[in-house]
């Protein structure tokens, strides 16, 4: 296998962990850390180093709520968004509250640009006080990251109290980490973004690393751009 994507990236692979756990120690953070560590180990086995940045949402809770109200992120939240935008792969981990993902986690996702994580490899993880919530990662995180057009690893992670003593959790972590590394090494995310970026909806000068920042980035051959330059719509249409 050629590491087409990784070969072109200078420096270590940038992993970013987002965790919405708020206790200390937090089992959501612990689950994410284990997935991150396993990912690093697997990358090292193929000769790649990795760096891990952790975005703890607890300390950003007020900033996130403020951003939802004011419509724009404050300085600290903006810095976190930029770190996330620059990630090569992401590991997200949320506690389950009231049979669903943490509202804090969802609120953080709500303030992100729609195109921030397009084709980005992601491990989905959730923790809960009971195994009855085992489907939350697949039933709530997976559609959320489908909306974001992220590349979620086929194996999602879930840990209830009894799982912390079970070797099966380690096996699932290894499986998810392996999937993440293979997604990274295949370069498929980068290929999708390289070849199909304009096919998604974007915001001019948004936070996504590939977002159009200047006139030289903008595609002027679209219907709307032709209309802007005095042309007519090719065919009257209903969008």
């Amino acid at each position: 296998m050629t590491d087409s994507a990784l070969a072109t990236t200078d420096g270590p692979v940038r992993l970013v962990v987002i965790t919405a756990g708020v206790s200390d120690p937090s089992s959501s953070r612990l689950l994410a850390d284990r997935a991150a560590q396993k990912t690093i180990d697997l990358l090292r086995e193929v000769g790649r180093s990795a760096s891990v940045g952790v975005i703890e949402l607890g300390p950003l809770a007020v900033d996130i709520a403020q951003a939802i109200v004011s419509g724009f992120p404050g300085t600290r939240l903006q810095a976190a968004i930029e770190r996330l935008a620059a990630a090569d792969a992401v590991i997200v981990s949320t506690p389950v509250y009231k049979a669903g993902i943490s509202g804090l986690f969802k609120s953080f996702i709500d303030v992100l640009d729609n195109d921030l994580l397009i084709a980005k490899p992601v491990i989905l993880a959730a923790t809960a006080g009971t195994a009855r919530h085992a489907m939350v990662a697949d039933e709530q995180l997976r559609p959320l990251f489908a909306f974001l057009r992220a590349l979620s690893a086929p194996t999602s992670l879930f840990a209830a109290p009894e799982d912390w003593g079970s070797p099966a959790l380690s096996e699932r972590i290894e499986r998810a980490a392996n999937e993440l590394v293979l997604l990274l090494r295949s370069g498929v995310g980068q290929s999708i973004a390289d070849s199909a970026w304009t096919g998604y909806q974007h915001q001019f000068a948004g936070n996504a690393t590939r977002s159009d920042k200047a006139a030289s980035d903008v595609d002027f051959s679209t219907d709307l751009m032709r209309l802007a330059a005095g042309g007519g719509l090719a065919t009257p249409r209903q969008l």
Partner: peptide, 9 residues
């Protein structure tokens, strides 16, 4: 405030 097509026009 956000639409390059409007600025283009």
């Amino acid at each position: 405030i956000r639409t390059p097509e409007i600025a283009e026009q």
